[in-house]
Amino acid sequence: MEQTWRWFGPKDPIPLSHVRQAGATGIVSALHDHYRGEVWPEDAIAERKAVIEAAGLRWSVVESIPVPNAIKLGGEPAREATAAFAETMRRLSRAGLQTICYNFMPVVDWTRTELRHPMPSTGLALRFDMTDFVAYDAYILARAGADRDYPPDLLRQAEARVGVLTPEQVQRLEATIIAGLPGAEDSHSRQGIANVIARYADLSPDDLRANLRTFHETVVPVAREVGVRLCIHPDDPPFSLFGLPRVVSTAQDLDAIFGAVPERENGLTFCAGSFGARADNDLPALLEAHLERVHFVHLRNVSTEPDGSFVEDDHLVGNADMVRLLALLLREEARRREEGRSDHLIPFRPDHGHLLLDDQDKTTLPGYSAIGRLKGLAELRGILATLTHPTYGVLQ
């Protein structure tokens, strides 16, 4: 498997020289200065690739070309936005980039409620607290209809939570939820997010699925034509936020997506943490069902609670059995090699990571500190070395 590292470009606090020290050989990046649905300039693509290669690394995965709300809402505006996405794909292909990760989450991208949650012995973690989220949705944002989307007990707990939050805590919670985490498509003000949510008022889950299918019916043939592998990232978290539909959360969702447009270029970013945030997702079974079209892997772990809350745990602690998942992926690589597939090497990255040691006092991007990801990559690398050992490995 190819060891990669997400890098947010020249403004990333972690330089590429440090990525090389971590042992990664591939870079996962995107042009975040061109992130509002416009076509990416070819000179900017070439410049990013040159910077990465000058550091002795390879731009392995594009994460992400954003999918604007116009595409998710469908209709005439979606056609122009989809054409822009397809043209960016063509330009990336001409630059030699073949793997593109993207997501289809409406309004908000990956979402947490706390960025520095104290762990018992492993630094500070990202956390999604369901009570805090409902407190924001129902009583701070005061979204119309929010009271119908949650159980009465949870609403009572959320109302009580709001009653003890200071103005500073309210501001921090709001910024964490809606201001945009690293790599997110957009950021919002309170009124701004209310306005965008209102645009989805009449959009059902089936409508969103239909709009995703329409999008795929346009861009997947282009991907096949230019030699690009698209890989959709699951919803994070994998359940409704702000009453909005999310349709890349479960095994049934994936069956529908890939059944509708079955070409292998219509692929999957298997994110163990995102799928693992639903206790009812069987991660090995979900992975096995779609191994042939897994083009990229995010490896992180979460520990869940009965109300849907979760914390990003150590890479080897939580809902995901990393040993089993990596064994499945290595077997798939071997199968692809035997088949003669050019994409037999599957890129993966250690996703997120705890704030450890003196990273707690440095400027870091939430989830993307150096030491926490370095620790995760080292642990995952150890599993890979064990599974493939010529004498003791179980895959020989």
Rank of each mutant, 00 (worst) to 15 (best):
T4P: 05
I14C: 04
L115W: 01
G372D: 11
A50Q: 07
H34Y: 14
T88Y: 12
G276E: 03
L115M: 12
V297L: 02
L126M: 10
V226L: 02
T4W: 06
V196W: 07
H34M: 00
A84V: 10
H188D: 06
Q21M: 08
T364Q: 12
I100N: 04
W110C: 13
A277S: 15
G183P: 01
P237M: 00
R331A: 14
P10C: 01
T88F: 11
A277M: 13
S121F: 11
D153K: 10
T176K: 05
V108H: 00
A201S: 14
F128V: 04
I371L: 13
E379I: 00
E38R: 10
R90H: 06
S369P: 07
E47N: 14
R190M: 15
V261M: 08
T364L: 10
E265P: 06
T363Q: 10
F128I: 02
F348C: 05
H117P: 09
L325V: 11
V311I: 15
Q191G: 13
H216R: 12
D321H: 08
R335K: 13
T4E: 08
I52P: 07
F258M: 01
E87F: 02
F239K: 09
S274A: 15
V19N: 08
V164I: 12
T122W: 13
L212R: 09
Y200T: 09
I71Q: 01
L326V: 15
L241W: 00
L154R: 09
G318V: 01
